[in-house]
Design a protein around this nucleic acid. Structure first.
Lengths: 255, 255
DNA sequence: GCGCACGAAAGTGCATGCAGTTTGCGTGCC
DNA sequence: GGCACGCAAACTGCATGCACTTTCGTGCGC
């Protein structure tokens, strides 16, 4: 599978292994946003030294799945609502590009592979949410992989994982049935070679996924305590954090 | 500005410093693609241990500026022509998004800042190519920064640096004057709030930059020997690398 | 009883050291 | 003279150890 450095990111294998494991744990919500990731614990768990665990955390931080603060324990990233929205916006553009490159150029084998994946999603529909979310995400990554463009693959994977993370944060029920159907329609359009239709389909699909998840900024569940308290803290002292509940206000201040 | 972890990527400062230094050295072509980056040398040069240098290399590898091969000296990345093309395609989409978010929403201060930057580009026009390339790249990053979306900023920066790297690989003369003018036009459209015009302008601008650079796959200067030799190696042994010069054939092997 | 300060425990930041791998050079053989 | 083998230098892969920072619990003063 190409050179391992591509997906695993770091050249080494041990680091790559840990990255993959953590990524998966994060997107399956085994590790919730905010969960602590001490270096020693990770090292011990994976049978490596802190050095390696540290390196892996660095990589994941670069991907935005982990937050690294100096002298503090690393934690699973807790994207803000606005970041989630931004991530989806970017994702839409990237995946439209994927679809544009793929429409009408998929081999029979590839189409079959996509179909099989959606079947797997279907099968997992009644299973735990985490798994079906992961499968849905992996469908998009599978699609990206078929472009064979390493850069595009990496970006789509990364942003998809991030979106996956925010999904686990904001959307609870996660209605997957429509998403699965949208996946099928998309495959059809891709196989048929209708570029415009496929791009539109992808756009709408992701938009509605985002929409279902990010409805009106839902309640910020386990979010940062400072954000949660922001509306209550009417004190002039100001919470010294992002204005939070003001979705678009931040785009202005000349900084 | 913002938390340092954003731009510097790694939480630490030392690592971030080295990353920034190397990034700059790379995009200014002080370090040409293929240049070796031994850990000890880096460590010694920056007054840190190999551990830190190694970490920095890991980050840069994640950004695609450095290639990390197991047990081998890290080298500055040497993107293939196809990768360059892919990078620009992605970049176009991302920057269109930037422009879409920015058009008509820039403060007077911001517009002035952009103008000042272009002035700087103008001033550097007769200087070394490396500097004007860097300034042109930084114009786009400055633009991205104004979206205040950390994710978008990161992605645009990354891809812009990568494109910058390929520019240094493929395009020698680098005619900057038209690019500068395009920057001015873009600012105008942004200030005027004409979203569509601005997006189109950005699209054309990047497309023509890519076009000027990647004309007909130029000669792959210092490229990977395996790729260069691929067309000559008609042996059935197959070079075990991507078929190279066949742009779209390379997509298939079920892996 | 409450708040504050001090100290231990936990954790990160980083350098160094050792083992394994690759590279390059010199020697011997053809 | 050229080629192959082998050894030594160079470099990476990784763990461990020490110093510093943060955190949290405890006891003292009020």
């Amino acid at each position: 599978m190409a050179r391992d450095a591509d997906q695993g990111r770091a050249g080494s294998d041990k680091v790559g292994t840990i990255c993959r494991a953590l990524r998966r744990a994060i997107i399956e919500q085994a590790l919730e946003p905010g969960a602590k990731l001490p270096e020693d614990a990770l090292g011990e768990r994976f049978g490596v030294s802190r050095t390696i665990a540290r390196h892996a955390l660095g990589q994941l931080a670069a991907e935005g799945l982990v937050e690294l603060r100096r002298n503090r324990i690393a934690v699973v990233a807790t994207p803000s609502w606005q970041e989630a929205r931004d991530a989806f916006d970017i994702r839409i553009e990237l995946e439209r590009l994927v679809v544009r490159q793929l429409a009408g150029r998929l081999s029979r084998t590839q189409i079959a592979a996509l179909g099989a994946h959606v079947d797997a999603e279907e099968a997992a529909r009644n299973g735990p949410d985490a798994v079906s979310i992961r499968l849905a995400t992996e469908f998009h990554i599978l699609l990206a992989t078929m472009t064979e463009s390493p850069i595009l693959i990496r970006y789509v994977s990364e942003i998809a994982y991030r979106c996956c993370l925010t999904l686990s944060l904001f959307s609870r029920p996660h209605s997957s049935e429509c998403a699965i159907n949208e996946h099928r329609l998309l495959i059809e359009a891709l196989a048929g070679g209708d570029v415009d239709a496929a791009m539109a389909l992808m756009h709408d699909h992701l938009d509605s996924v985002a929409g279902r998840a990010l409805v009106a900024q839902a309640k910020p569940r386990g979010r940062d305590i400072m954000d949660i308290l922001a509306p209550y803290a009417a004190t002039p002292a100001q919470t010294r954090r992002k204005p939070a509940t003001l979705p678009s206000a931040r785009r202005d201040a000349a900084e």
